[in-house]
Amino acid sequence: MIGADDDALLVALIDDRLDAAARRAIEMRLTVEPKLRARYHELAAGGLPFTRAFDAALAEAPVARMQAKLNAVGGGVPRRRPQRRWIGAAAAIALLLAGAAIGRFAPAPFASEDNDDWRAVVASYASLYTPETFAGIDGAPNEAAELAKLSHALGVALTPNAIALPDLTFKWAGMLAYDGAPLGEIA
């Protein structure tokens, strides 16, 4: 029977994190203890190329979208702690707002504890935006491509002409989700 202490030694040996004395000691035991040796091989077999695999996951991260959201959190983040109700959905919001339209959302109350309506969550999140939120973002170069992605994902025809509103400037469009349901964000 291999105990937890021996497991710890074997893992540290496999990970090459033992000092010289401890390493010599366990290596000596491995030469004379067949069960310990069997366990060593069992644990060593579970050593997969974790770094390589997780680096591939790193490349899958939606960095551009997360950066855009980070950029969108301007100087106006409130000191108030967001309610637990919607913190998980903080990124999963759809909203259509720009320029002066922000003001329409600003007074919206936070979602009540009994209200799961995504619209309330959207309104709550939108209340974090200020006129400065999108001040430094030039959305024009990416407008057609971002809308095309959104159209494809949502099955709704969205083009620059279709969404254009008088006196409002396109800043950003992206794919979000709320409790598993797809949502598009156009700002």
């Binding site: 959201k69 702690r81 967001p82 998980g88 903080a90 999963a92």
Partner: peptide, 16 residues
Amino acid sequence: DVAEDLVQATALRALE
């Protein structure tokens, strides 16, 4: 999707 939510919530909390 949860991972992305977590990053956004982390950003908000960290800035706070």
